[in-house]
């Protein structure tokens, strides 16, 4: 379905996109952004699921099982920690009722 040069084009455009999207990111967001991009490659989960769905021998199934566990950990863990960090970023203008 995706073959040859089409795949190459997708690869090239996606590479430029990744570079451009974060090229002007402030340092204060480096850690959350690394975590966020870490979450995005958690999409490996769908690949691991497909690989597992097609696995036949016990060995293949076992490896695929580990793959799906790891991938789900990547996706869920990446989301949880990124969300926790970003939730804390607040502007002084946006918090009229401070706790103290």
């Amino acid at each position: 379905m995706i073959d040859g040069f089409i795949a190459l084009y997708i690869f090239m455009l996606a590479a430029f996109t990744g570079y451009e999207v974060i090229s002007r990111v402030p340092v204060i967001l480096h850690t959350p952004l690394m975590s966020g991009s870490n979450f995005v490659h958690g999409i490996v989960l769908v690949g691991a699921m497909v690989a597992m769905g097609r696995a036949n021998t016990p060995l293949e199934i076992a490896i695929a099982f580990v793959g799906v566990v790891l991938a789900a950990g990547n996706a869920v863990g990446g989301y949880v920690v990124t969300e926790r960090m970003l939730e804390m970023f607040k502007s002084s203008k946006a918090q009229p009722k401070a706790k103290h």
């Binding site: 997708i10 990744g18 690394m34 490659h41 490996v44 690949g47």
Partner: peptide
């Protein structure tokens, strides 16, 4: 992830993986 996306014919993996690959390199 992007490379395995090519193997599985999975465009979402190719795009997400590549975007992270280049963004991560820049970072």
């Amino acid at each position: 992830v992007a490379f395995e996306g090519f193997v599985l014919d999975n465009a979402a993996m190719i795009i997400a993986g590549t975007v992270v690959g280049s963004a991560g390199t820049l970072l």
